[in-house]
Amino acid sequence: MAVELEQLCAVVLPLARQELLPRFNRVAAAVKADGSVVTEADLACQQAVSAALAAHWPQIPLLGEEMTTAEQQRLLADSAAGLWCLDPLDGTSNFAAGIPYFALALAYIRHGEVQLGLVYDPVRDECFSAARGQGAWLNGVPLRTRATGLALARCVALVDFKRLTPALATRLACSPPFASQRNFGSSALDWCQLAAGRGQLYLHGRQNLWDYAAGSLILAEAGGCAETLQGEPVLHVGLQPRSVVATLDPALFGPWRAWIAAAGG
């Protein structure tokens, strides 16, 4: 059974609005074993989306962020036929603190590649989506590479300092090659802001599969470039976290990557 992006959006978006918005800034947060935050909204949204996907595509299993590591590993070991990868609430710390920057992120992975990606921001009602080889969209409008003509010194960079090495983080903070820096607190949405041209550079030291799977396809289909700090493809269908160096404009990727390498990244 083929999975159509339009149908997927129709199934998932109403659930994200229903499960997340009424709970925004109204639920208590707990801390998981890995130090990350989880709320009732994470669990309720994952349960609702999982049930809806199973009803429409019963043959495709779902790997969710809020599953145990053992469950996730079991699913990945048998993922060749395809699976969903869901982060029901990316930006949970923002959500719990009342900061309106969070999203649901969903990817369909098959044969080791992301085939479909969907990131939905219910606060702004913005749906970023992509289908492999077919393009990327924001609320149905195509996202395409735009040559900026900018030097690094004039760029806005989306940088998560927390997960970088102290040496690289210090160099970026004290001698940045860009004009301005932002860190919004949702990896999935950051990929999409880059794909939409709301910033020119991106750097993150550690993301999980559910953080980057959907967003990496959206950026790639918009014409952007990305790799890890080690120069490898970002996508790896496993639980090992991955770093990200990315730009939307391919002309900026080489200079950005070279500066990071020279700085010890």
Rank of each mutant, 00 (worst) to 15 (best):
T39C: 03
Q115Y: 04
L229P: 11
E19Y: 05
V245Y: 03
R146V: 15
V37R: 12
L118F: 03
C127R: 01
G149W: 11
G265F: 10
A80Y: 03
G91C: 12
C45W: 00
P100M: 05
L104K: 10
H111R: 14
Q7R: 08
G98K: 01
L20M: 08
D125Y: 12
L194V: 04
G205M: 06
L235N: 06
S50R: 15
C174V: 14
L104M: 12
V49P: 09
E4M: 01
T92K: 02
R132Q: 11
Q59T: 15
L172G: 06
A41C: 08
V156Q: 15
G135E: 00
G82A: 00
D190Y: 13
S36L: 14
A130K: 15
Q230P: 01
C9W: 07
I218A: 06
L62V: 12
G223C: 04
W137T: 01
Y120M: 01
L5D: 00
A33S: 11
T68R: 13
L209G: 00
A214H: 03
T165N: 06
S79T: 10
F95G: 08
T92R: 01
A107Y: 04
F253E: 01
E6P: 00
N183C: 15
T165C: 03
L201E: 13
L20I: 07
P250W: 05
H204Q: 11
L168E: 05
E113I: 12
V31S: 14
A28I: 07
V3Q: 08
T247Y: 02
A16K: 05
A263P: 03
D121V: 14
G82R: 02
A153T: 14
T92A: 04
L152H: 10
W57F: 08
E113F: 05
D160Y: 13
G82W: 06
C192L: 15
T165M: 06
A220P: 00
I109H: 11
A30F: 01
R206V: 00
D87R: 02
G199W: 14
A28G: 05
S187Q: 12
A77M: 11
A167C: 03
L152Y: 11
F178R: 11
A77G: 15
L118G: 08
G64Q: 08
A2H: 14
L5S: 04
T145Y: 06
N208C: 13
S175C: 14
N94A: 09
G197S: 07
R132A: 13
I60L: 03
L219P: 02
D78V: 13
F253R: 07
L194H: 04
V49W: 03
G264V: 00
Q207K: 09
D249H: 06
E19H: 10
L158D: 14
L209V: 05
G215F: 07
G35D: 04
R182S: 13
V38S: 08
I109Y: 11
L194K: 07
S186R: 09
